[in-house]
Amino acid sequence: MSTLARPGSAARSKRFTEAVTGYLFLSPWLFIFFTFIVFSLGWAVYLSFTRYNLLRPPEWWGLEGYQRVLTDDLFLEKALPNTFKYVLVVVPLQTIVSLVLAFAMDQQLRFRRVFRTIFYLPSVTSSVVISLIFIWLFAAQGVVNQIIGISYDWLGEVGTAFYIIMGMNIFTTSGTLMLIFLAGLQDIAPAIYEAASIDGASKLQQFLFVTIPMLRPVIFFVVTVGVIGCFQVFDQLYVMTRGGPLDSTTTVTYLIYKWAFQDTTIKMGQASALAIILTLIILAVTLLQRRVIEGSGAAAD
């Protein structure tokens, strides 16, 4: 930069220095971001158009990988319906449970700090550990069967395995979502509740017509995070059932893992194609729900 005194040049030079300093501060994060996010994502997009078995260099394949995904029986008949079923059951339930918990924790109850901690505990425990605990609880000779006095292999039967995993996920995530709701609840000005009660609104009416509309942005956030998390469910399935019994717990992410790492002949390209398809599904669902939740309640903001 020239140091010649020209009007404006000092200011421009200062702006430039500031920008350099800014990017310098950002650089460690940018480096990680570009290496592990941008590059990896780009590479996965590239791989989705190739045939790649990890042992030979990727070979251009065009849309063949996508075509194979979209005609694969396991994907169409098991993984995709299972994933949607999982989202449709888990997201509403975990949202409602965590909202009710948060509302209860927001009241002037005794020991509410203790309860908050207890409800939050599952969220800070590793999902693998929780999965193992659930395996022991629901094993054929596990605690649950001992208590109700039957012998039933909960995780080994097609009819129950997936629901146990769903229940476990609701149990684990509700704590975190409760905290988010709690923060949202405490943001609502007491004056609004006061006004409502002066107008003669009951507690239930206050909850339905004051709390929920005021929480709309928080609900959007919780549902979005929940939907994305549910579409990507993997670790619990991997630990508890490995996609079985009879593919009843095979989801899209588990199928990606199976193709990419489990098959005798690795199908990295096809797995990448499925990963891209999953990304598009999540994107579409998120945009849709933004229209539904934010669109209908713009007035509340």
Binding site: A139, A140, S151, D153, G156
Partner: peptide, 10 residues
């Protein structure tokens, strides 16, 4: 009934 899976006995 003369054979069983390991999961049958937990």
């Amino acid at each position: 009934g003369s054979g069983a899976l390991p999961s049958d006995v937990g």
